[in-house]
């Protein structure tokens, strides 16, 4: 488990080159399509609710969301 964790983190951060981006260069980064569900939080919430009620895992997508008797 720990080895897998370290391998994944290492792979993720390897090869990342960082260039300073000024605020006026962030037009593309600010697009809704740079977020999962294109910034449509409602669709994201609905689909995550399906996963949450049908699978055992949770977490990783923020701490708020509320409880549900579905699980």
């Amino acid at each position: 488990m720990r080895v897998m964790f370290l391998i994944i983190v290492a792979l993720f951060f390897s090869g990342c080159s960082i260039k300073e981006v000024k605020p006026w260069q962030k037009e593309i980064l600010a697009k809704e399509s740079m977020q999962f569900s294109g910034g449509d939080g409602n669709l994201r919430k609905f689909v995550n609710h399906i996963y949450f009620s049908k699978e055992a895992s949770k977490g990783g997508s923020g701490v708020a969301g509320g409880g549900c008797g579905c699980n």
Binding site: V9, F12, F13, C16, I18, K19, K26, I28, L29, V63
Partner: peptide
């Protein structure tokens, strides 16, 4: 969250 360049970014989280 780290912006890599004007076209990409990475996010990592622990929970």
């Amino acid at each position: 969250t780290q912006i890599l360049d004007k076209n990409s970014l990475i996010k990592a989280s622990l929970f």
